[in-house]
Amino acid sequence: MPVTLPLPLRKLTVPSIGRRRVTTQVVATTTALCAGFGLFAAGADSDNEKINTVAATAVAQAPAEPAAAPAPAQPAAQPVSFPFQIPGIPLPPPPRPTTVRPVDAVVSSGFGPRWGANHFGIDFAGNQGVPIKSVTDGTVIEAGPATGFGLWVRVQQDDGTVGVYGHMQDILVQVGQPVRAGDVIATVGSRGQSTGPHLHYEVHQPGVGKIDPQPWFAARGMDVMNFPG
C-alpha cells in the first residue's frame, strides 16, 4: 500500500517496492565487491607465500660466502734514533773538545807547598816518550830550553792564559804554530830538575800570575785529578 505524505512532500514519495529493489541491488553489489576483494586478497597472500618460499629456497641453496681474510698486522713503529743518517748525506763529525788532558797519566803532585818550596803546577806521572797534547786551542809562543825545565813549550791558550809544559823529551812544535786541543806538541821526558819522567803543567793568568790548574780545569768541565787508568 502506498504511503501518503503531506502535499508539500509528495514529489519525494517513493514506492516501497522501488526502495526494496534499490536496497537489494546495493546489497548485492556490495556483496559482490567484498567477494572480489576477498578473492584478490587471497590471491595476493598466495603470491606472497610463493615469493617468500622461492626466496627462502634460493638463500638456502646459495653457496656460503668465504669469510673475509683478517687484515695483515701492521709492523710496530720503530723508534727514531738521533742523529740519524739520510742516505747519500754523511753525518757531521762530532763536536771537537775544547779542553783535553795533557797526558794520559795520573796526577802525582798537585799545586802548593812541597819540600819546603812552592810547587806552581801539576805533575803527571807519564812514562818516557808518552805523547803530550795541547790542553786547549792556541798558539805556541815559546819552545826550547828553559832553566829548571830542561825543555819547555809555552802556549797562548784560548782564554788568554798561558799553558807551560816542562821536562819534555822531544819538542814537536815551533814558535808561532797554531795548535788545537788534543794536538801532540811534545813527548814526556825527565830533563831539567826532575826525579823521573813526568810532565809539569802550569797555568799563568795575565795580571795574576801562576794559578792552581785544578780549579781552572774544573771551570772548563774537567776533573783532572780523576784518571780511570
Rank of each mutant, 00 (worst) to 15 (best):
73 A>E: 15
6 P>D: 15
157 Q>A: 00
166 G>P: 07
155 V>C: 09
186 A>K: 04
52 N>P: 01
152 W>K: 15
190 S>T: 04
43 G>E: 09
227 F>K: 03
10 R>A: 15
184 V>Y: 10
90 P>W: 02
11 K>A: 14
7 L>M: 10
214 Q>E: 14
108 S>L: 01
63 P>A: 04
130 V>S: 15
220 R>W: 01
50 K>T: 14
132 I>L: 08
15 P>K: 07
196 G>F: 00
153 V>E: 13
211 I>E: 05
51 I>F: 08
116 G>K: 13
174 Q>R: 11
192 G>C: 10
196 G>D: 03
58 A>R: 11
70 P>D: 13
81 S>F: 07
44 A>T: 09
173 V>Y: 00
172 L>Q: 08
112 G>W: 02
138 G>S: 03
31 T>W: 02
73 A>Q: 06
30 T>Q: 10
99 T>S: 13
194 S>K: 01
115 W>S: 08
99 T>P: 01
44 A>Q: 11
202 E>K: 02
209 G>H: 03
141 I>G: 03
226 N>A: 15
48 N>L: 14
74 Q>H: 05
170 D>M: 04
123 D>N: 08
117 A>N: 14
60 A>K: 14
75 P>R: 12
132 I>Y: 11
81 S>P: 00
6 P>A: 15
41 A>W: 01
28 A>L: 14
91 L>T: 08
163 G>C: 03
32 A>I: 12
183 D>Q: 03
12 L>S: 12
61 Q>A: 15
220 R>P: 10
6 P>G: 11
175 V>L: 06
114 R>N: 07
136 T>H: 04
69 A>C: 06
183 D>C: 03
67 A>Y: 01
113 P>Y: 11
100 V>I: 13
132 I>D: 11
177 Q>N: 07
135 V>C: 03
80 V>C: 00
112 G>S: 04
45 D>I: 10
70 P>M: 09
174 Q>E: 12
203 V>A: 03
175 V>R: 14
39 L>Q: 08
100 V>S: 09
72 P>K: 06
125 A>D: 07
58 A>W: 06
70 P>W: 05
187 T>M: 06
83 P>A: 04
128 Q>I: 14
147 T>P: 12
74 Q>C: 01
209 G>F: 02
51 I>H: 10
